[in-house]
């Protein structure tokens, strides 16, 4: 039975962007299903995933828009940036070209979202240390210069995947708390559910795996 209780106080819209083949869909799949998808088909346009996490003692539903990385989809996927509260900008640590393209992705992200959108840089495929093509320090410096959060992660092993989504959520939540993110703004990417009852109850139904939080 999917009669889920009303068990979250906020909805955050996320987008995942970055070159083709960096593992965007695999990160999402690892995050929502806790599984590695070895032969992931190319994403067409956008696909979706959701998961409820606990952030600062509040249940937050992440509505994740996983965009296609292929250049030919770019015109269409740009339409989806608007209203994102968080953006995961992904590159592949074993392919320098994907790192080199980051400035173009960042420009899109900055231009098409609002100034409060939290952007986190993710170096994926951290499990392939032997084939590393981009150093941690280099990427960290790029992130710092551009005011981005930064993590290296592996969709395969699951390392830092949870953290990546959570770090961005924490920052967004912090922005809400200190008032820098205006929830009433049309494109904040955050929906507040003030009428939600405590939100502490989890339903023992088929949704449970999806809703499993870090607690």
């Amino acid at each position: 039975m999917t009669a889920a209780p009303y068990n979250y106080s906020y909805i955050f819209k996320y987008i995942i962007i970055g070159d083709m083949g960096v593992g965007k869909s695999c990160l999402l799949h690892q995050f929502t299903e806790k599984k590695f998808m070895a032969d992931c088909p190319h994403t067409i346009g956008v696909e979706f995933g959701t998961r409820i996490m606990e952030v600062g003692g509040q249940k937050v539903k992440l509505q994740i828009w996983d965009t296609a990385g292929q250049e030919r989809f770019r015109a269409v996927t740009r339409s989806y940036y608007r209203g994102a509260a968080g953006a995961l900008m992904v590159y592949d640590i074993t392919r320098r070209s994907t790192y080199n393209h980051l400035s173009s992705w960042l420009t899109d992200a900055r231009n098409l979202t609002n100034p409060n959108t939290v952007i986190i840089l993710i170096g994926n495929k951290a499990d392939l240390e032997a084939q590393r093509d981009v150093t941690y320090e280099e990427a960290k410096q790029f992130a710092d210069e551009n005011g981005l959060l930064f993590l290296e992660a592996s969709a395969k092993t699951g390392e830092n995947v949870e953290e990546a989504f959570l770090e961005a959520a924490k920052r967004i939540y912090q922005n809400i708390q200190d008032g820098s993110l205006d929830l009433n703004a049309a494109e904040s990417g955050v929906q507040h559910k003030p009428s939600a009852p405590q939100g502490g109850r989890l339903n023992a139904d088929s949704q449970a795996p999806k809703e499993g939080c870090s607690c």
Binding site: A3, A4, W65
Partner: peptide, 20 residues
């Protein structure tokens, strides 16, 4: 327990696709 269409529709990502 009562089955809720809206909740299920959202679970199947119907709302997200509609929004997009």
């Amino acid at each position: 327990t009562v089955a809720h269409y809206g909740v299920m529709f959202d679970d199947f990502q119907g709302l997200s696709h509609l929004e997009a």
